[in-house]
Amino acid sequence: MSKSELRKDKTCLNCRYVVENKFCPNCGQENTDTRKTFVQLFVHFFEDLTHYENSFWKTIRNLMFKPSSLTKEYLSGKRMSYLAPIRLYIFISFVTFFLFSVIPDSPSDETVKVNENQAKPMEQIIVTEADSINKAKDNLEKKKWIADMEKNGYIDKKVADTLQKTIDDKKAPTDGSDYMNFGYRSVEHLDSIQKFGKADEKLNGFEYWVNKKILMVKKGRTQKEVYDKVTESFIHNIPKALFIYMPLFAFVLWLFQDKKRWYYFDHGIFTLHYFSFLLLASLILELFNFFVGLMGNNSITNGIIYMIDTIIIVYMLYYFFPAHHRFYEQSRIKTIIKGILMFFINMIILTFILVGLFFYSFINIH
């Protein structure tokens, strides 16, 4: 429980009702001093987030190791002992995606990349440097960059001459000549065809918008830069996709269950708990791989990672069946048959959502 001191004034700050005990009998607000130190503020925030006392760890334990127990307890009316489903999902979702964004790649992976770069022959180094130099704004800036690298000893004269030659021989690039080429060199080329081209060359409104957006995204970017931008935007938008997908997942559950016994609300609570489990299991998997990866890249750590990853992934796939069986109280045969059918239906829905998410991520690159 909160350890804040009670106010001497018995008048509730929220509704002005007389408070005889700790909580206001009219609005339920705790009659404690609102001014807190930083430590008290942090503790209070954590208590609010975890719903006081040990309810947080009790919720997490049941979520991980007792499939469907949280859902059954919540729907039976026992709601004060556990985190509310929406609060639980939001908390786990926030922590999971936040840590995913800040956890760096495995140090062993970085070491391998460095070693691979050191082992490259001279021709590959030339190609790599040429690709980096091509990002410069104009040829004069590129040549100055090459001269500075030669002067500082980063490359020898042979490499510098080769890089200079690639600049002199390189033709002016166009937006539509290298990758994702749909026959248009630039936005200006597309607009000119749309305005002055023949009727059979012009695009309809949607096709014109898509092609123009592709050219605008590609402009001034290499293929790798576009890929990195799309990937970053895609990962950033996954939480939004999950919010869209969860109601559809609950709807599929509703289709396969007794409509008189189960309301859509019941399936929604089951879905919130199930997706909270999937996110938490994914976070545990990521953290485990990261910390074991700190021990180095060798056969022992790789074996441990492979074994634990396999166990967690298999458990994530298996979890739905006992949760479904215990919550809906159906035979194992029905649970397996319905589970397989729902799996394929959800795969179709998820595919459409991911394709839409990829398209949305692409067109929103700035």
Rank of each mutant, 00 (worst) to 15 (best):
Ile126Cys: 06
Asp148Phe: 03
Asp109Trp: 11
Asp131Tyr: 09
Ala119Asp: 11
Pro107Trp: 04
Val114Trp: 11
Asp168Ser: 10
Glu141Asp: 07
Ser132Asn: 13
Val112Met: 11
Lys170Trp: 04
Ile133Cys: 06
Gln118Lys: 14
Lys143Ala: 01
Asp175Thr: 14
Asp109Ser: 14
Lys157Gly: 03
Ala160Met: 06
Glu150Trp: 02
Ile133Leu: 13
Ala160Asp: 01
Asp109Gly: 10
Asp148Pro: 06
Pro121Arg: 15
Pro121Asn: 14
Lys170Ser: 10
Glu110Cys: 03
Ile125Ser: 08
Ile126Val: 07
Gly153Asp: 04
Thr162Arg: 15
Ser177Thr: 01
Ser177Lys: 10
Asn152Arg: 08
Lys113Met: 11
Thr162Asn: 14
Glu123Ile: 10
Lys137Leu: 05
Asp109Cys: 11
Thr174Lys: 12
Asp105Leu: 13
Ala119Phe: 14
Asn139Leu: 01
Ile167Thr: 03
Ile167Leu: 12
Gln164Val: 00
Ile125Met: 12
Gly153Lys: 07
Val127Gln: 11
Glu150Ile: 00
Thr162Phe: 14
Asn152Asp: 07
Lys170Asn: 06
Lys165Gln: 14
Asp169Glu: 07
Ala136Leu: 08
Lys157Phe: 12
Asp138His: 05
Glu150Gln: 08
Lys170Gly: 05
Asp138Glu: 06
Met149Gln: 03
Ile155Cys: 11
Lys157Ile: 00
Ile155Phe: 09
Gln124Phe: 15
Asp169Thr: 03
Asp138Trp: 09
Asn152Glu: 03
Lys142Met: 04
Pro107Ala: 02
Ala130Met: 13
Ser177His: 06
Pro173Tyr: 14
Asp161Asn: 15
Asp131Gln: 14
Tyr154Asn: 02
Asp148Trp: 02
Gln124Asn: 12
Ser108Asp: 13
Ala172Asn: 05
Lys113Tyr: 12
Asn152Ala: 03
Ala147Met: 05
Met122Tyr: 15
Asp138Gln: 05
Ala130Cys: 11
Ala147Asn: 07
Leu140Ser: 02
Lys120Gly: 05
Ser177Ile: 03
Asp175Tyr: 12
Gln164Thr: 00
